[in-house]
């Protein structure tokens, strides 16, 4: 129980939080904008990880794998939205149920293709450790933190400085009023899905060198992402970022100090927020 353990746990937690942000920010936008609880989101995270792994291991390039995972999952997400969900627009319960079917299809397909094995691949350039003040850190986890910061900044800029971003933020608050101004909000749905799914695929792929990819990865991280969206407040960028880090750090601290509570803590946190502050921890 040294200070060293504590610092390592916190750093690992932030690294995990960076990945969690990639899966939950898309989920949060989709939920906030369209009202859809997207159960297929975790499957996209997992498929991104598998595709990332395949490209990593065959090209030996981290960048190519991440790009392939992002691109393929953007495409798949866009297809799910325009091919399936668009036909049920207005029926948010029906849409959520359809994503449950999609989740079942994708998870099962992945299981048939890749089986029960855990696949892992680490880039040579980030294999090592760094010693800072007598504490040893894994290079890859530090890379994750930096990479996560870049992605968060990119998402923030999209939402803050583009037309689509402004429309999405406004529509999360009051969709009807945005339409009353003459803007067809539905046109932003597909782009939100493409963006969110790409981020999920990227998050899954970038996690492979640390934790690997295995068949229950999708559902596990989907549940974490649900907790984060609830804790951070639906549709809130700042909230999702803060909650991702909070959940990441809490999970890692619990895993070090009270392992039997590791996952349960997250959902206790989620329950507490739902009961005490249903609008989430962060406003707007």
């Amino acid at each position: 129980m040294s200070l060293e353990t504590l610092i390592v746990a916190i750093v690992d937690g932030i690294a995990l939080g960076a990945t969690l942000f990639m899966i939950s920010s898309g989920l949060s936008l989709i939920f906030g904008l369209m009202g859809i609880v997207n159960f297929a989101h975790g499957s996209l995270f997992m498929l991104g990880a598998y595709i990332g792994y395949e490209v990593f291991s065959s090209t030996n390039s981290l960048a190519l794998g991440l790009a392939a995972a992002t691109a393929s999952m953007s495409l798949l997400g866009g297809t799910i939205e325009s091919g399936l969900l668009k036909r049920k627009s207005g029926d948010v319960l029906g849409q959520a149920l359809i994503t449950i079917g999609v989740m079942l299809l994708l998870d099962r397909t992945a299981w048939i293709i890749w089986g029960e094995t855990t696949y892992k691949w680490v880039p040579d350039s980030l294999k090592g450790v760094i010693e800072l003040g007598g504490i040893i850190f894994y290079e890859y986890r530090l890379f994750l933190i930096a990479f996560g910061a870049v992605i968060a900044a990119a998402v923030f800029s999209f939402l803050k400085y583009t037309n689509y971003g402004t429309i999405i933020r406004a529509a999360i608050e009051d969709r009807e009023m945005v339409e009353a101004l003459g803007i067809d909000v539905r046109k932003t749905f597909t782009i939100t899905f493409i963006l969110g799914s790409g981020l999920a695929g990227l998050g899954g792929a970038v996690l492979v060198p640390w934790l690997g990819v295995y068949p229950t990865l999708g559902i596990t991280y989907l549940l974490y992402a649900f907790a984060i969206v609830v804790i951070g407040g639906i549709g809130s960028f700042t909230g999702t970022l803060a909650a991702s880090l909070l959940v990441g750090v809490t999970q890692q601290l619990a895993a070090y100090y009270v392992p039997w509570l590791a996952e349960a803590t997250i959902f206790i946190l989620m329950l507490a927020v739902l009961l005490l502050r249903p609008e989430g921890l962060v406003r707007g």
């Binding site: 049920k88 029906g94 359809i98 449950i100 079917g101 999609v102 079942l104 299809l105 099962r108």
Partner: peptide, 12 residues
């Protein structure tokens, strides 16, 4: 299970 998932979506 995949067929069940597809049937589910079709029913929706």
């Amino acid at each position: 299970t995949i067929i069940v998932g597809a049937v589910f979506i079709a029913v929706m």
